[in-house]
Simulated scan of single mutants.
Amino acid sequence: MLGCVIHGQDDLRVTELPAPEPGPGQVLVAVRYGGVCGSDLHYWRHGGVGDFRLREPMVPGHEVVGTAVTGPLAGRPVAVHPATPCGRCPECADGRRNVCRDTRYLGSAARFPHVQGGFAARLAVPAEQVRPLPPGLPLHRAALAEPLSVALHAVRRAGAVAGRHVLVTGAGPIGCLVVAALRSSGAARVTVTDLIPEALRYATTAGADTVVRADDPASPGRPTEVDTAIEASGVAAGLDTCLRLVRRGGAVVQLGMLPPGHSPFPGNLVVSREIELRGAFRFDREFDEALTLLAREPKFDELISAVLPLPEAERAFALAADRSRSCKVLLDFAG
């Protein structure tokens, strides 16, 4: 079968891979679409993401949907939950499986040997990670379930947002989906900042009330204070903005993965204003909520900017990395 493999920085190859054989308790999935994620781009462009570095060739991809080939759902369209928590650690016992200390996550270099991902024509995964699609949800839109789950988890970490003004820094695919998640959670007003006008247009499509050029102090609509802030850009300047604009006693959620090493931030504001700074990492049960939300809202289709066939994987990655030309890019594994 054909698959996509990252061998190191700037070394992405489409190549023949051995087809997997499902083991006990596993389901074989014929992959149709895979969304190119920011972490996939980091592995390709930088050889790692955050503190996770490539140490061997790895199949990327964790936003995958397709058709079940084996098991009770054989022949049905399905989405794949990419996480396999251990179920034994203190975090799993506490109901926080998304921060399981021994989890396996598709297309991740967090452990060695790396967990191979889903950018291949066939994928064998534990049966409990396979979800049938709700009626009426097309496969291409279902490919947004994983990043939307990340966004829903971040909004949950923010606490009560209904009726509140929320700032989102960063209008990449995750930031735009955070906007949609905030809307579904009843936020009264959503303001989004970014450096790229095209990205801000996607944020407006997702439901932002106000979009602001992050590098323009005179940009119309720039808030002086917000109730809650979600940092989705993954840069220290975004966190700085969130901490300076959130009200006293407000909450800031750090969702974007910051560069490895130390990142400066105005820590004294956390103290003097009693700001609650919270991390948000991946997701757990939000995956099923994401599928339900996608099924009832066709407007999510507008965030899919391109669908390219697997042999053009390098072009798809380059397009996904160019935020002036894309929001979410999908790979098509048909054929």
Rank of each mutant, 00 (worst) to 15 (best):
V178T: 15
P217N: 04
V235T: 14
D288R: 05
P85C: 09
V253Q: 00
T224W: 12
P264D: 07
P259W: 01
L123T: 14
V27Q: 15
G25I: 01
F281T: 12
A158W: 09
P217I: 12
V192C: 11
A19Q: 12
R222S: 02
V161Y: 05
M58I: 15
D194W: 10
V31W: 13
H46N: 13
P264L: 05
A83F: 10
L17N: 00
E91C: 01
H7R: 15
E302K: 14
G175D: 06
A208S: 03
P85D: 01
V14T: 09
G163T: 06
A154S: 14
G117V: 00
T205Q: 14
E128C: 00
L28F: 09
A306K: 05
G163K: 08
T70L: 00
F333R: 06
I196R: 10
C37D: 15
V31G: 10
E274D: 09
L106H: 01
V5F: 02
L144C: 05
G163D: 14
V235I: 15
L308Q: 03
K328V: 12
T103A: 13
V27A: 07
G23N: 13
L28W: 12
A237M: 08
A171W: 11
P90E: 08
V80Q: 08
G87I: 09
S305T: 15
L2H: 11
A19D: 15
F112I: 02
P90M: 03
V168Q: 04
A318S: 15
C37E: 13
S326C: 06
G25C: 08
S263M: 03
S39Y: 11
V192Y: 05
R282M: 10
P134F: 02
D288Y: 03
L200K: 10
Q9L: 04
A313M: 05
G335K: 04
L258H: 00
Y33H: 13
R282W: 04
C4T: 13
T224N: 07
P57A: 06
A214W: 00
F112K: 01
T193S: 15
F52K: 13
H153I: 05
E276D: 15
M257E: 07
G267F: 12
P60V: 02
A93V: 14
M58S: 07
V192K: 09
P24M: 04
P264G: 01
P77E: 08
A171P: 11
F300H: 10
L330I: 07
V235H: 11
G186I: 10
L308E: 01
A83Q: 13
G250Q: 08
A321V: 02
D322K: 13
R13W: 09
A151G: 07
V150E: 07
H140I: 04
V64E: 10
G175H: 05
D11N: 13
G250P: 06
V150P: 08
G261D: 06
G136W: 11
H7W: 08
K299M: 12
